[in-house]
C-alpha cells in the first residue's frame, strides 16, 4: 500500500521558495485506482513525480511530509535508490507516449533494460513475451527490432506500460496517459489499465484533468486545487453529491450531450499561481458561496461517510456530519 502523508513540495524560483504541493495526504490500496483530478498547475503532476522520486532536485524537492510503500520510507529516494534498497515496486507511465521512448534504441532493448534492472538473472525473452501478452502488444510490434517511431501512439503507450510492469509494481502512477491519444485508443488503454489493476492486484494513481475518464475508471477520487486536495471520496459519492463547490464547478464544466446546444459552463477566474495563493480558502475568490470566514484563517475539513472536503460552506450540507 502506498501512503502519502502531509506532503509538501517546494520549488526554488527567482521569487524565493514556493510551495506547489501544500500538505497532500492519500493512500492507495492494492487493486485500487485513485483518480487525482485537477487543472494544470494544481500540483497533481508534482505530487506524482515526488512519489516516484523524479523531481528535478535540488530546484524542486520534498520539504516535508512522508511517502511510504508497505511501511518503507521512500520520501527522498530516486528510482535508482529505491531499486537498490529493494523498494523498486513503483512505476510510472507518462502523458506523451510519442516522446517517452528513446528514439534511437530498439523497443525490445528498452523493455529488456527495465527487466534486467529488477532481476539481472531473468530470462529476458520469456519475460518480454509475458509483458507483451499482459499489455496485449501483438508479436509483430517487436519483430525485426522495431524502433519507437515505427509504432502508433497507442502501441507506444502499451510499450510504456510493459516497461512499467517489468518491475512488478505494487503501485503504478499514470500521469495523463491517454490525453495524447485518439478517443478510441484512449478507451482501449483505460480498459487495459483497469484489467491490469484487477489481475495484478496493483494500485494505480491515475492523474488526469478529465472528470469523465475518472468516473469510468477510478474507485476513489481526490480533487486537487492550488496544491491541496480539496475533496476526496469514492467515485459514486463524489459524483452524486459533491461537497466542495470547486468539484461541483468542475462537474458542471463537463458538457452534457442531453441538454443540446446549451452554453458551455466555466468556472469564472483562473487557478492562482503558486506565488499568489490567497489566504484562507484558495478557491474563495472564484467561489459563489464564499463569505467572510473563507478569506482568512484555516479551512475546516467536513466529512460525510468516507467523503471529505476542505470547505466552510459545503454543498449537500444535509449529508455532512460533525
Amino acid at each position: 500500500m502506498l501512503a502519502v502523508d502531509d506532503l509538501v513540495v517546494s520549488v526554488v524560483t527567482s521569487l524565493g521558495s514556493l510551495d506547489i504541493v501544500r500538505g497532500v495526504s492519500f493512500q492507495i490500496a492494492p487493486g485500487e485506482i485513485l483518480g487525482l483530478v485537477g487543472e494544470s498547475g494544481s500540483g497533481k503532476s508534482m505530487t506524482s513525480l515526488a512519489v516516484m522520486g523524479l523531481l528535478e532536485t535540488p530546484r524542486t524537492r520534498v520539504t516535508s511530509g512522508r511517502i511510504a510503500i508497505d511501511g518503507a520510507d521512500i520520501t527522498h529516494a530516486t528510482p535508482y535508490e529505491r531499486v537498490r534498497k529493494g523498494n523498486g515496486d513503483i512505476a510510472m507511465i507518462f502523458q506523451e507516449p510519442m516522446t517517452s521512448l528513446n528514439p534511437v534504441r530498439r523497443i525490445g532493448d528498452q523493455i529488456a533494460e527495465a527487466i534486467k534492472v529488477h532481476d539481472p538473472k531473468a530470462d529476458v525473452r520469456a519475460r518480454t513475451q509475458e509483458l507483451m501478452d499482459l499489455v496485449r502488444l501483438p508479436d509483430s510490434a517487436l519483430q525485426h527490432g522495431a524502433y519507437p517511431h515505427e509504432l502508433s501512439g497507442g502501441m507506444r503507450q502499451r510499450v510504456m506500460i510493459a516497461i512499467a510492469l517489468a518491475c512488478r509494481p505494487k503501485v503504478l502512477i499514470a500521469d495523463e496517459p491517454t490525453t495524447a491519444l485518439d478517443v478510441t485508443v484512449q478507451l482501449q488503454i483505460l480498459g487495459l489499465l483497469r484489467d491490469l489493476c484487477d489481475r495484478l492486484d496493483m494500485g494505480i494513481l491515475f492523474i488526469t484533468h478529465d472528470l469523465g475518464v475518472v468516473s469510468q475508471l477510478a474507485d476513489r477520487v481526490a480533487v486537487m486545487y492550488a496544491g491541496q486536495i480539496v475533496e476526496t471520496g469514492s467515485v459514486r459519492t463524489i459524483f452524486s453529491a459533491p461537497l466542495h463547490p470547486y468539484t461541483a464547478g468542475l462537474m458542471a464544466c463537463v458538457p452534457d450531450p442531453s441538454t443540446g446546444h446549451a452554453p458551455l459552463v466555466t468556472i469564472p477566474g483562473q487557478a492562482p499561481r503558486p506565488d499568489e495563493v490567497p489566504p484562507g480558502c484558495p478557491f474563495s475568490p472564484r467561489c459563489s458561496r464564499a463569505d467572510t470566514p473563507c478569506r482568512s484563517g484555516p479551512v475546516p475539513t467536513v466529512r460525510a461517510g468516507d467523503h471529505a472536503a476542505l470547505c466552510h460552506f459545503p454543498l449537500n450540507e444535509e449529508l455532512v456530519h460533525a
Binding site: 516516484m52 523524479l54 530516486t78 528510482p79 535508482y80 529505491r82 531499486v83 523498486g88 512505476a91 510510472m92 507518462f94 506523451e96 516522446t99 517517452s100 521512448l101 528513446n102 528514439p103 534504441r105 533494460e113 527495465a114 534492472v117 529488477h118 510504456m160 516497461i163 512499467a164 517489468a166 518491475c167
Partner: peptide, 20 residues
C-alpha cells in the same frame, strides 16, 4: 521525456547518461 522514462526504470545515473 525518454530520459525521465530511463530514470524511472531505476537504472543507475551513469547508465542513464551513457545509454540514453
Amino acid at each position: 521525456d525518454y530520459v525521465r522514462t530511463a530514470r524511472a526504470k531505476g537504472i543507475s545515473p551513469r547508465q542513464v547518461t551513457v545509454r540514453h
